[in-house]
Amino acid sequence: MRLLSYNIHKGIGGRDRRYDLDRIIAVISHERPDLICLQEVADGIPRAGGGDQVAAFSGAFPDYHPVSQTNHRFRVGSYGNLLLARWKVERSHDVCLRYLNRKKRGAQLVVVSTPTGPLHLINWHLGLHESTRQWQASYLLEHHCYRESCHLPTVIVGDFNDWRNTLARGPFARHGLRQVTEPLQRFRSFPAYLAMSSLDKIFCCPQVEVEQAHVVRSRLARDASDHLPLVLDFRMKHRASRVEGTSQVEPGHKHQEARHA
C-alpha cells in the first residue's frame, strides 16, 4: 500500500506565494496514495482562499474516509491536520501536543482497517523548538491512546521540524521505532524550490516492511507548497487485534467522543 505525507502550507506556493489548492490536489492525485496525511490544512483563512479545505479535499477524494483535527486558531480561521484513508477508519484519537504557552500542535492517531489488517497511523506537526519537539515526541509515545494500539503495525509521519534529526536517536530509538527517511540527504523536503533540510519524516515499527520511500520532486510539487511531499510504499505483518471505539484526548482531560466523517 502507498502512503503520502505532505505539509501543504494552506495551499500557498512556497516560491510564488500564490494560493492554489488545485496544485496540491494534482500533486497528491499523481502519486495515487491509499493513505493521505496532510498538515497545515486551512479553514476560513482569508489568505488561503477563505474556504473549508477539509471539504475541498473530501470532494477531490470522494472515496476516501476523512478525519480532521483543528490545532491553531487565528482571529479569523484556523488550520490543522487532515488524514484521508481509502479504507474505513475504525478508531480515532486526537492528542493535543501543546507545550507550555507555545503554539498549539496536535497528533492524529487512527486505526485503519486495510485489506491486510489494521494499521496504526499517526499524523502530526511538531514545534519549532528542540525542547518542544523532545517533549512532544516523548509525550505521544508514552500516551495511553498510543500505547493501546502500538502492538499493531505502526507508522508515524508528518512535519517533524527536526532539522538536526535528534528525535531518531532519542525517544524513537527508546520505543523501538526506526527512521525510514534516511540518509537525510536523500529526503530533503524544505524549502520545496531548493530543498536543504529533511523536516518531513517517517518512522515505523518492525512489523512494517518498507518497500521504498521517496520525496516527490516534480516541478508542480516544487511550486505548490513550501514543503515537498513524502511517499512510502510498504507492507504489514501483525497479530490479530480487536478494534473498537473513538475518542479524543487532550492533556489533563478525560476521554471524550471524537466525531469524524
Rank of each mutant, 00 (worst) to 15 (best):
R2L: 07
R2P: 02
L3N: 01
I8M: 10
G13I: 03
Y19P: 06
L21V: 06
S29E: 15
D34T: 00
D34Y: 04
I36K: 07
I45Q: 01
I45S: 01
A48S: 14
G51I: 05
Q53C: 07
S58W: 02
F61D: 05
P66H: 11
V67T: 06
V67N: 00
N71S: 13
N71P: 04
R73A: 07
R75V: 05
Y79W: 13
N81K: 03
L82F: 03
W87F: 12
K88Q: 10
K88A: 05
K88M: 00
V89D: 01
E90M: 12
H93T: 15
H93V: 15
D94H: 15
V95R: 02
L97Q: 01
R98Y: 06
K103W: 06
R105S: 04
Q108A: 08
V110N: 02
V111Y: 00
V111K: 01
S113Y: 01
P115F: 08
T116Y: 08
T116I: 08
G117L: 10
P118E: 09
H120S: 13
L126K: 04
L126F: 15
T132V: 08
R133P: 04
Q134M: 11
A137P: 12
A137R: 05
L141G: 05
H144N: 12
Y146M: 08
R147F: 07
S149I: 01
C150P: 00
I156M: 14
V157C: 14
N161I: 02
W163K: 06
W163C: 03
G170L: 11
R174E: 15
V180F: 02
L184H: 15
L184K: 14
F187I: 01
Y193E: 11
L199Y: 06
K201W: 03
I202H: 00
C204N: 10
E209A: 12
E209D: 11
V210A: 05
V210Q: 11
E211Q: 13
E211S: 05
A213H: 09
A213W: 09
H214G: 12
V215D: 09
D223L: 15
S225D: 11
S225K: 11
H227Y: 13
L228Q: 06
P229Q: 02
L230T: 04
L230H: 03
F234E: 00
M236E: 00
R239C: 09
R242V: 15
R242D: 12
V243A: 10
G245R: 11
P251H: 06
P251F: 04
G252V: 13
H253C: 15
H255M: 12
A258Q: 10
R259P: 00
A261Y: 06
